[in-house]
């Protein structure tokens, strides 16, 4: 495992820990999109089915279980926790997230590496993950006061994707890995969606101002 991959995974893990910490300590999920979180549950369940078919490493197995468990846990908090659910910005989180699931699945049926159940589900999870952040970015744009934890959560999530791009470049040149266009392109699309957010996040950080996205 190269340094970019490890840093990417750690950034992803940290983002989830940060979000859970925000929810548990402030008893609030304000600014967090339930739609995005629900899409992540679908992404992880579809992708990590290979938990049962193939063993890679202890690290790999533990991380998969952590990502499945934490994503379910976050959705549970936002939907069912007596206090937390009342802080959810339901009226602002209006992206109809279920409409992106069928097109992603259809695309996975058409464009994949190999036509097997596991491979199509894996590919579906890549396509879905690429767009899963959209409801969150839309909610963010509608939120007047973005708290630091929410801003940092999205930054870490975007950093995870950007580091994975570096990881693929490293693997391609240093490990002579095969070209994997499906992962690369969907990863590139996913990272590109963060570009605008990154721009304003870094700007606010440099100017020592509160993060605010233009309407």
């Amino acid at each position: 495992m190269n340094i970019f991959r490890l840093a990417g995974d750690m950034s992803h893990l940290l983002s989830v820990i940060l979000l859970l910490l925000k929810i548990r300590t402030t008893k609030s999920c304000a600014g967090i999109s339930l739609k995005t979180q629900e899409l992540y549950v679908v992404v992880f369940l579809a992708r990590y089915l290979n938990l049962f078919t193939r063993y890679y490493s202890f690290y790999n197995t533990v991380m998969k279980l952590v990502f499945i468990a934490t994503s379910v846990c976050i959705v549970w908090y936002m939907r069912f926790h007596k206090v937390v659910k009342q802080t959810y910005n339901k009226d602002l989180d209006t992206f109809r997230h279920y409409v992106v699931i069928p097109p992603c699945f259809l695309l996975a049926l058409l464009v994949h590496h190999e036509f097997t159940v596991m491979e199509v589900l894996w590919t579906f999870s890549l396509y879905l993950e690429a767009v899963a952040i959209l409801p969150q970015l839309i909610l963010l744009q509608r939120t007047r006061n973005i708290d630091n934890l929410t801003g940092n959560y999205i930054f870490l999530l975007g950093a995870y994707r950007a580091l994975y791009l570096l990881n693929w470049i490293y693997r391609f040149f240093m490990e002579k890995a095969q070209a994997r266009w499906i992962s690369w392109i969907s990863g590139l699309v996913q990272t590109a969606l963060y570009a605008d957010f990154f721009y304003y996040y870094i700007k606010s950080w440099k100017n020592n101002e509160k993060l605010k996205l233009p309407a």
């Binding site: 991959r5 995974d9 992803h12 290979n50 193939r54 890679y56 490493s57 790999n60 991380m63 998969k64 990502f67 590496h113 190999e114 894996w122 994975y164 990881n167 693929w168 890995a177 095969q178 994997r180 992962s183």
Partner: peptide
């Protein structure tokens, strides 16, 4: 193995 190429990623 072509499959193990990215499938060890998360």
């Amino acid at each position: 193995n072509a499959e193990s190429n990215v499938h060890d990623e998360l």
